[in-house]
Design a protein around this nucleic acid. Sequence first.
DNA 1: TTGAAAGCGCTACCAT
DNA 2: ATGGTAGCGCTTTCAA
Lengths: 341, 341
Amino acid sequence: MAVTIRTIAEAAGVSRGTVDRVINNRGGVKPELERKIRRLIAELGYRPNRAGKVLAALKKPITIGCLLPGVGNPFFDGIIRGFRQAERELSDFGVSLEISLIKGFDVREHVDALRALARKNVSAICAATVDVPEVREAVNGIIRSGIPVATVNSDLSGTGRLFYVGCNYPESGRTAAGILNLIRRDEMELLIVTGSVHMQGHNQRIQAFTQELADRSVRFHVAKVIETGDDEEIAYRCALKALRDFPGVNGVYVTSGGVSGVCRAVCEKNLAGKLTVLCFDDIPSTRRLIRDGVISATICQEPSQQGYRSVKMLFEDIVNAHPPEKRLYYTDTVIKIRQNL
Amino acid sequence: MAVTIRTIAEAAGVSRGTVDRVINNRGGVKPELERKIRRLIAELGYRPNRAGKVLAALKKPITIGCLLPGVGNPFFDGIIRGFRQAERELSDFGVSLEISLIKGFDVREHVDALRALARKNVSAICAATVDVPEVREAVNGIIRSGIPVATVNSDLSGTGRLFYVGCNYPESGRTAAGILNLIRRDEMELLIVTGSVHMQGHNQRIQAFTQELADRSVRFHVAKVIETGDDEEIAYRCALKALRDFPGVNGVYVTSGGVSGVCRAVCEKNLAGKLTVLCFDDIPSTRRLIRDGVISATICQEPSQQGYRSVKMLFEDIVNAHPPEKRLYYTDTVIKIRQNL
DNA sequence: TTGAAAGCGCTACCAT
DNA sequence: ATGGTAGCGCTTTCAA
C-alpha cells in the first residue's frame, strides 16, 4: 500500500491532523516537529492522493468562473464545448462552471464581467479577454484577492495569471506560409486581411507568415493589408475594393474573422479556385467554403482542447494547492483541408 | 448536496448495502424491493460518485495489461507515452500498467504474449495486435474468462473487444489525396509503397487515396505498388528499382513503414524536391526528411492520444462496471508539414 | 501546539 | 434476504 498521511503520522509519532497542518502550511506546528515531518514526507516519498482530497473537498462545492467574448462569434463554441466536457468529467468532484458570455471586446464590459465573476465567490477564473492596462489591473486585483486566474486563447502579459492555454500564434502563421509554399510555386501577390492591428496574435500571424515566406525564398510581395475589426461586411467591402485595385493578387491571407466576407468578394470577382485563400479556425461558414473549394486550407488551434485543459488544470490547482508546472500550454497547430475537416 | 447512495437508502427505507447490491447487480435482493430501489434511483437521478468508488476500490490495486509490437518500431513510442501519461494520472487511483513489448507481427508470439498478460491477473487488456483467426480466438477466450479487452491502433474484427481507439484509415488516405491535389496540378504517375497487402489499414489507405484522387478529377495512374513488410532495406531496393523502371514517376505514396528506405532511393536518384513524397506518422527519421524537404507532408494519427484514451477508458470501464458509449474512437487525422511538426 | 473524531461516497464483509 | 460496520485518504472542527 502506498504512503499515506497516516504512514507519516505514525512514523513521526504524531496525529494525522498535525501532518495535515504541515502539508497544507496551515501553521501552528512547532518548528522542529515540522522539520521532522517534512523530512519524513521527503524520505518516504509521500504524495497526496487525489481521490481522498476530492472526496473530502466534496463538502463544499467548487465553482469555476469562465469569461468569453463568445456572443455572436462561433469560434468560441469550441471552447465552450471543452468547458462543458471538463465540467461533466469533474461533476463527480463537486465542480460546476459559471460561464459568462459577452459580446465583443469593449474594455469596460470585460472589466465589469470579470469583477462580477469574482464577486460570485468562484474558486478560480478562466478568461479570454483583451490585453490592455485596465483589464490587466482588474485581473491583478482579483488575483490579489485570492482567486487564481488563468487565460485561455489570448494571454494577458505582465499579470500574475496562473497559466495560459491557447494558440501558438507565430507557429500558426509559419504553418500558413508552409502551406502556401507547398501549393504555389509562382510569384505571389498577397492580400492580407487582419482583425485588428492592436491584437498581438493577429500581428504575430502576419509577422511569422511573411518571415517564413522569406526564409523559404518564396517570391512574394504584399499588395495591401486590410483591417476589418472582424466584421464580415467591412471585410467584404474592403476585399472587393482591394481585388479591384490590385488585379494581380493571387493569394489572400486572413488572420482572424471576416473570412466569409472576404470569400464573398473573391467569388463575386470570379476568382474562386484561381486565387489561393488561407485562413484560421474552423467555423461552419469556413467549413462550407472549404468544401466548395474557395478556401484551400484553414489552420486551427483545437479550441475545445483549450477550454477542456484550462478548466481541468484550474481544478488541479484548486485541489493540489500548488502551482502548475508550466505557465504556457500551446495547443497543436492543426491543418484542415476538405478531406480531414 | 447531490443524490448519494445514502439518499436512496433512506428514501427506500433500507440499508446502503442493499442499495449497493442492486446498483452492482450483485443479486440477493427481493424482486419487489429491487424494483422499488431502481425506481427511486431513476426518479431521484442518482449517479454514482467516482471519487467515492475509486477511494473504496483503492484497497485492491488495479493492473491494466498492454500489448504492443513496439520493439524496434519508433511509431509505438508515442502510444507508450500516452500509456504512461494515463498511468501517471491514474496512479492515485491505484492503477498501474503492465506493458508487454514484442517485436514484429508473428502470430504465435502475439497469442503467447496475450495469454501471458491474462495470466498475470490484470483487470483489463489493451492491445495492438494482428487481425487473424488465431489472435481473435485467443482474445475471445480472454474476454470469456472475464477480462475486458480493448484494441488500440489496429482493430480486431468480429471479437467481443470492448472498443477500438485508433486511426481512421480511410480518412487518412483521403487526406493524403487532398494534399497531393493541393500541391500538384500536373498529371501524376504514382509509386505506391505499402507495408503489407494483408493489413487492412494499409489497404484502406490505398483504396481511399486513389478513390479520392479520382473523385477530385486528378489525372493520375499508378505505375507500381511495392510491398515492403515495413522493412527499410527492402523498401530502399524496391523503390530504387521502381524509380529506374518508371522514370516518369513524380509522386510516391508510402502507407506505412519503409519511409526512410524509400527516401534514400529518391535522394540517390536526385529526385528529392522534384518528386512529391507523402507518408504517414511522425517518427524521428520522417521528421528529418521533412525538414530536409524530401517529404512534403506526413499524415499522423495522434498515437499518444491513442494510448492515453484507451487506458483511461478501460479504467472507467473497470470502475463503472458498465460498457462505454461507443465502440469506435477515431483520433484526428493530423497533417504535419515542416512548419507545424 | 496537538490530538481525536467525524464525515465525504462507496464497497466489502460479517452478522442476522 | 438484509442490516450494520469498518475502512479507503484526506480535511475540518472541536477539545485538550
